[in-house]
Computed example of a mutant assay.
Amino acid sequence: MAELKRSRDRVIAGVCGGLAKWLGWDTSLTRIIYALLTVCTAFAGVIIYIVLWIVMPDE
């Protein structure tokens, strides 16, 4: 399994692209799933995204 890093294929910070690469999923599908989960969890995903942005190293 690849190392978890932020992707250069980024829309905002590369977090979803990095997660997609790490999981072996399609980048667009990962972004859609993450957006839906963020809306369904009262926007807790925004906080998680910011934390991952800070913690994950750049590719």
Rank of each mutant, 00 (worst) to 15 (best):
S7H: 01
S28W: 15
A35S: 14
M56A: 01
W53K: 10
D26F: 09
L36K: 10
W22C: 07
C40V: 08
T30S: 03
S7L: 00
P57T: 03
R31P: 08
I48H: 09
I50A: 10
I32D: 14
G24I: 04
M1E: 10
A42M: 11
A2L: 11
K5L: 06
K5P: 01
L29G: 15
A13S: 12
V55I: 08
C40Q: 12
R31N: 11
G18F: 04
T41F: 09
V15H: 03
V15K: 02
A44S: 06
I12Q: 12
L52M: 09
T38Q: 03
T30D: 05
L37C: 09
G14P: 11
Y34H: 09
A20R: 04
S7D: 01
V46L: 11
A2F: 13
I47D: 07
A42F: 12
G24S: 04
Y49N: 02
T41A: 05
I12W: 12
D58Y: 13
L36F: 15
W53L: 09
E3W: 10
Y49V: 01
S7M: 00
L23C: 12
L37A: 05
L37V: 07
D9C: 00
R8A: 07
R10H: 03
C40D: 11
L36C: 13
A13T: 08
L4E: 03
K21P: 05
S28K: 15
D58C: 05
Y49Q: 02
G24R: 07
D58A: 10
L29F: 15
W22K: 09
W25T: 10
D9T: 00
L4F: 06
V39N: 06
G17C: 01
L19V: 08
A42P: 04
